[in-house]
């Protein structure tokens, strides 16, 4: 498989195209759900899942290896995020914003920006989950390390690295306020 940043870029572009096709007001609903997922994953999920895993493994009298723990963290939260985003797209439109989106070039630009934001949050979080767990996908033969120089640079700008977990909770509140404001 090619460099990880190509996969990231592909996700990024797909989200932009989806945003342009669906309209950015619906995409803002997906953004809200991603913020919720990000808050849950970064504030509670990643810190507490290892403890939970240890207890479960202890219960079965099995030793939890570091690599197994990393696999668990990466796969659990990646699936959670994918599930949340899938649910947002597959009909859970509760958080979609009201009103009529801008038409023409302005609508196009805003659609691209919102799609890019969703792509960055989604793709960036999946990448971050791999990065903090030392890339478990390598064991599956899906990815070859080391990262390219571009990949290493981009990895410094993944969303959960840049802001504290509480920011995502604040963003959820802001999104809800913006949604009911009208």
């Amino acid at each position: 498989m090619g460099p990880l940043e190509i996969l990231f870029l592909t996700i990024f572009i797909i989200f932009i195209l989806i945003s342009l096709a669906r309209g950015y007001l619906r995409e803002l609903g997906v953004t809200t759900m991603i913020f919720v997922a990000l808050f849950l994953i970064t504030e509670f999920g990643v810190p507490y899942l290892p403890q939970l895993l240890e207890r479960v493994y202890d219960f079965f009298n099995v030793t939890l290896t570091t690599r197994a723990e990393q696999h668990w963290i990466a796969i659990t939260f990646s699936l959670l995020l994918i599930l949340v985003v899938f649910a947002s797209y597959a009909g859970l439109n509760t958080f979609a914003f009201r009103g009529v989106p801008q038409k023409g070039f302005a609508g196009f630009v805003i659609g691209v920006l919102v799609g890019a934001l969703n792509g960055y949050l989604f793709g960036g979080t999946l990448w971050w989950l791999q990065d903090i767990t030392y890339y478990p996908v390598v064991d599956l033969g899906i990815l070859l390390l080391p990262l390219t120089i571009t990949g290493e640079t981009l990895a410094q700008y993944l969303p959960p690295y840049l802001v504290p977990p509480m920011f995502w909770a604040v963003m959820v509140m802001i999104m809800l306020i913006l949604r009911v404001r009208r």
Partner: peptide
Amino acid sequence: IILAIVILAASTARGGKRSAAA
């Protein structure tokens, strides 16, 4: 950047009481 995109997108929605999904 995130705040700017979100506020820009949310503030440019025109009229309408119902959601785009509805």
